[in-house]
Nucleic acid binder design. Structure first.
Lengths: 366, 366
DNA sequence: TTGAAAGCGCTAACAG
DNA sequence: CTGTTAGCGCTTTCAA
């Protein structure tokens, strides 16, 4: 039996074993400590020994065991991103921006989807934070009220998306929903509409995001001196196409249907437009529609959808940076409220015509 | 100083420390081994001691440190899912199905997106598998050829989605693209179309998926005795709306434009329809369009898009189960080719009308 | 600057 | 059935 490069074993070594820090140390003739220093660029190392170590590193094609590293230093290098639905364009577009941002900071992304189930969401919040596979959580809740959001493991860094937090219980990143909604409805008013419906209100204590949009809607109507016809405010369980379609059908069944619709998401808008087309009504001629989120579908749909466009790149950037700031201890203290930019983007569904246009910034707000 | 419940320490204990297996063992008066057995439901344990342990478990609200567990048993309990774009509906809908499937099997999901970058993809394949944070990889490649897919770390369980593998180098899950494309074009022929364009061909060695669709297109035309006009086969760099729009513009600039389009994805179809509307052509009256993927957008667009509908739930199920079969050692040996069901779903973009319909299974295959 | 050694918290051989 | 114990591979305090 020929001698192996590694010390002898009683049992035959496994066919192939990845090189460890120890192997590198032996080959380089230094201690594991030194190799670790080189690998992590920590303490100063003599150019001489560094060269030796690096040669060994290369020769063995060493790659650190991330699990072991995590266990030793108590950091997983992963963050968890929680969304209600992955196949909702708004969330997938957001994730598309979040993942590279996290990666440039050296973190991998775990994903969970809750289907908006309050129990699932609550469980995620209360899970003991240490010994977990992630160092922090980016959370887009749907079924939880503000109070429930506060009842959580305070040790786990948390940034909440899309819900308003006024009380410093956690960091929050989003846009000013009331102002954005007001702008959207102002736009419809400016287009000469008078019977403006709102689709997407939610009565629950968990529907605060929806309620802020409704608030903006009311403010804009009040400004314009228009009455609020409560029968034009339609509630929906969620913000998807099917909800938009159903709500639109209900509105059309009214004795005096609306001449415009403010939809609380682009999907809702698309669902509404779908129904309008089916019954032979023209958009925007008969009914103008404005949506919310600026998902890609709305830029290619027929007609294209006027919408409130949140700066998703900014949301992703702010959210990831705030979260990792807490993870890495650079930030402490009370949660902050971060409002990012948004813009109202008029397209065919309110203006008609057939031209495409890029992301406008008119009526942009902060 | 009052006595602490834990053994004395020379330095003050950290303000709060999560209970470990050891803590539980001490409290219950048994060995860590036994606690481990109870927690993992391994060996048989006396009801008596089990009760003791469980009481201690509950009292301390013990939760295992997953990192430590992973390091000890060499399994992370995570799989990595790699897609080119997260905000492409096909992929996000697939992920929506994959995540719960993995979770029911006890695995968490890490996500990476490559933007179709061949270097990124190749790096992922070659990364040393041990010491990684994931036990297996579900991979939807875009920029890699079959050969490049084979050049990988064989130790990492891998299931490939959406590319055809005939050679057992890895497991593959998908639908029969040639047959599905043939069905799609047959459908257009059956609708009385004669000048049928194809949008989405790709010439590269990495464009094999696209080339199979083109093959099906040619077969269907040949069957119908129709000539293949190469100017009607338009190549696109990717499969998104913008590509579909550009390709459609090019087709309309032809001296003799098509009366039907087979688009290699629903996004391409939507982009094409967008352009057709803009120039005032009617779908399907002037130009019929059939897509591929059956994404939700196509069920609510105007018109709704006829499409090839792969059984995404089956793809997710088969892919996750095959992958975990290998991860857990239940499966070994050569890679298999798994073909799942698909159906051609006719909608307004080929048939006209304005009714909605659910997922049809007519012309379903395989 | 570098080495020795003690963990991180859990699993699993190996007794008993 | 349960206890003892030796790691998993890395980081990091403490000495030298």
């Amino acid at each position: 039996m020929s001698a192996t490069p590694r010390e002898d074993r009683l049992v035959p070594a496994p066919a192939v074993r990845d090189p460890t820090l120890r192997d590198v140390a032996e080959l380089a003739g230094v201690s594991p400590r030194t190799v670790s220093n080189v690998v992590n660029g920590y303490a100063r190392v003599t150019p001489d020994t560094r060269a030796k170590v690096e040669r060994a590193l290369a020769q063995l094609d060493y790659q650190p065991n991330l699990l072991a590293r995590s266990l030793a230093n108590g950091r997983s290098g992963q963050i968890l991103v929680v969304v209600p639905y992955l196949d909702t364009p708004y969330f997938s577009e957001l994730l598309q921006a979040v993942i590279p941002r996290a990666r440039t900071r050296g973190y991998d992304v775990l994903i969970d989807q809750t289907d908006g189930d309050p129990r699932h969401e609550a469980a995620l919040l209360r899970r003991r934070s240490r010994g977990l596979r992630y160092d922090g959580m980016l959370f887009s809740p749907l079924g939880l009220s503000q109070d429930e959001l506060r009842d959580r493991d305070q040790a786990l860094p948390l940034v909440v998306l899309g819900e308003r937090s006024s009380d410093g219980g956690f960091d929050h990143v989003g846009i000013d929903d009331v102002a954005a909604s007001r702008d959207a409805v102002r736009h419809l008013v400016a287009c000469g509409r008078r019977r403006i419906a709102a689709i997407g209100d939610q009565p629950y204590r968990t529907g605060e995001a929806a309620q802020r949009r409704t608030e903006g809607y009311r403010q804009a109507l009040a400004e314009a001196g228009l009455p609020v016809d409560e029968s034009l405010v339609v509630q929906t369980p969620r913000f998807n196409r099917a909800d938009g379609a159903r709500a639109m059908e209900a509105l059309l069944a009214l004795p005096d249907p609306p001449d415009a619709v403010f939809a609380y998401s682009d999907l809702v808008a698309l669902g509404a437009v779908h129904v309008l087309h089916r019954v032979g009504l023209r958009v925007p001629d008969d009914v103008a529609v404005v949506g919310y989120d600026d998902i890609e579908d709305g830029r290619y749909s027929n007609p294209t959808i006027s919408t409130v466009s949140p700066d998703k790149a900014a949301i992703a950037r702010e959210a990831v940076d705030r979260l990792l700031g807490r993870v890495e201890g650079a930030r402490t203290g009370r949660g902050e409220e971060i409002l990012v930019d948004y813009a109202l983007v008029p397209r065919q569904s309110t203006r008609g015509g057939s031209s495409e246009e890029g992301r406008g910034s008119e009526e942009g707000r902060e």
